[in-house]
Design a protein around this nucleic acid. Structure first.
Lengths: 160, 160
DNA sequence: GTTCCACTGAACAAACTGCCCAGTGAAAAC
DNA sequence: GTTTTCACTGGGCAGTTTGTTCAGTGGAAC
């Protein structure tokens, strides 16, 4: 939908201090409350802001091990595999990617030993031909959005 | 830190309707406001809840293409490569993984053609020996946390 | 039996929200 | 050139929520 610099600054402010309300937002942006409200509504209804759900840290829940598994799927078994993986709570994310019927999923586990259990459960299905797993050691760049927002706001060229 | 069923329900409620406040939360949980407040504070200070930042959809910002790139890094070049990738706004996430000096990063781009530009920028560095990219076609399971929270709350055995 | 701790239920002032309105300026349409 | 449209401003209002504090209760640990 495209965002201008004001939208960009609004998103940055929200990313830095999510608890601030519309009023405080408008103060920091130097605009009227109605404007901040309208911008926020537009970003939300336009799908740019999907929501404000809590960002939960799996490690703090007792799942400090993260891994990415690449799965090779037998022809036509895709839907079954998806349904299967959806039932595994340790599967946090699943993508289908280009390549020979591949899927990529993000897993967490209580320990390296526990990861074996998770993987066994994940691959314990007919449709999965092969799985290769990479265990995450460090996370130098956690999921971030601000740089992209800044880029998108600049590209729009509009003031803000 | 471990969570009990009440914490679990609280997290689920927040995940479903993030805008509700502490008062509404306490009403739905059937506890006093102070209790909901205290639980929320504990989860936040304990690191389970990292924050309530807006979940921004890159597609709505004009970046509908997502890809995962596996990078093979030359010995000792890790830190330089990290620093380099941090400067690329289209790099949303970066992990170092087990394997031969590998990194895994999540990219977005404005189009498949634009992805080439992003990848060129990503690999445009001495330390990177090889890069293989998988373009995401579908995302059957978007990043989710509720099933894991439920699991963690059950495992604790405590009431809620 | 005492202490500790989480929870309840209540109160209060301060702040925020949702909602409304009239007025302004600039760009677009006629 | 005139009119219309639209985003923004700045203000007001009632209702609700928040931050904070307090006394009282019940269970568990010591």
């Amino acid at each position: 939908m495209g965002i201008d610099r004001l939208d960009g600054r609004l998103l940055e402010l929200l990313a830095e201090e999510p608890r601030i309300g519309v009023l405080e937002l408008s103060r920091r942006l130097g605009v009227a409350r109605g404007t901040a409200q309208a911008r926020l509504d537009r970003l939300t209804s336009g799908g740019v802001i999907r929501g404000f759900g809590p960002q939960v840290d799996p490690a703090a829940l007792g799942y400090p091990v993260t891994a990415f598994a690449t799965l090779e799927i037998k022809q036509g078994q895709g839907p079954d595999v998806r349904a299967h993986l959806t039932t595994v709570p340790e599967v946090l994310e699943l993508h289908t990617t280009t390549g020979s019927g591949d899927m990529l999923c993000r897993l967490v586990a209580r320990s390296n030993a526990d990861l074996q259990r998770v993987i066994d459960r994940v691959v314990g299905m007919e449709g999965i031909v092969r799985a290769s797993t990479a265990i995450v050691m460090e996370n130098p760049v956690p999921l971030r959005i601000v740089p992209l927002v800044r880029q998108a706001a600049q590209d729009s060229g509009a003031a803000g």
